[in-house]
Design a protein around this nucleic acid. Structure first.
Length: 168
DNA sequence: CCAGACGTTGTT
DNA sequence: GTCTGG
DNA sequence: CCAGACGTTGTT
DNA sequence: GTCTGG
């Protein structure tokens, strides 16, 4: 669940909405954020007291990784296992964040193909998804700040559109 | 012990 | 069918 | 998540 | 870095 979403609220609106003081981020409206692309997150600054808007790569790159590896999908983390999975454990303990969104997309499978839906609030206000972020530094000094979105079972509203698969 | 994975979804 | 790139 | 590629050689 | 499978 949640492989695409929209972020088109302007940083000022997000700042009001999520209690952020720093808004210095080069954000433009995004109606279709895809995995590996940069997106906006809300996270604590180092003092752990204030929040900032920050640009992160969608698709968490573990700090111990040799680099981004698209063979593994780190765009979502299951809520039931996020505390113990090697790729997420450290971030879960230390580096949680909010992913502001105006809508997220789900595709309903039908016999004539797939029908996309945009899911958003009735009042169209931005909302937050739960996320984790990670800091990665390569041997050449390059740096990637990345994130993942935590997912759970579909609720009654979403179930007719799309259910998260069961896992052994 | 070392080598290799480290994740999720969809589809059959 | 399955992987990669976005 | 979807869309698009999926291969190798030789030449510029 | 840390766990799992062999």
């Amino acid at each position: 669940m949640c492989g695409r979403f929209a972020q088109f609220a302007d940083p000022g609106t997000l700042a009001d909405h999520f209690g952020v003081e720093t808004t210095a981020v080069g954000a433009r409206p995004r109606y279709n954020v895809a995995p590996t692309q940069p997106m906006i997150a809300v996270r604590l600054v180092d003092d752990q007291q204030h929040r900032e808007l920050v640009q992160l790569r969608w698709g968490l790159v573990p700090f111990w990784s040799k680099g981004p590896d698209n063979r593994y999908s780190m765009i979502n983390a299951r809520a039931e296992t996020v505390a113990s999975k090697p790729a997420y454990r450290a971030a879960f303990a230390q580096r949680r964040c909010l992913i502001p969104a105006d809508a997220f997309y789900e595709w309903q499978a039908g016999k004539d193909g797939k029908q996309p839906y945009a899911i958003r609030r009735k009042d169209q206000a931005p909302f937050a998804m739960a996320g984790l972020w990670e800091h990665w530094q390569g041997n050449d000094g390059s740096v990637i700040d990345s994130c993942t979105i935590i997912v759970t079972e579909a609720n009654a509203l979403l179930r007719p559109i799309h259910e998260r698969p069961l896992r052994p």
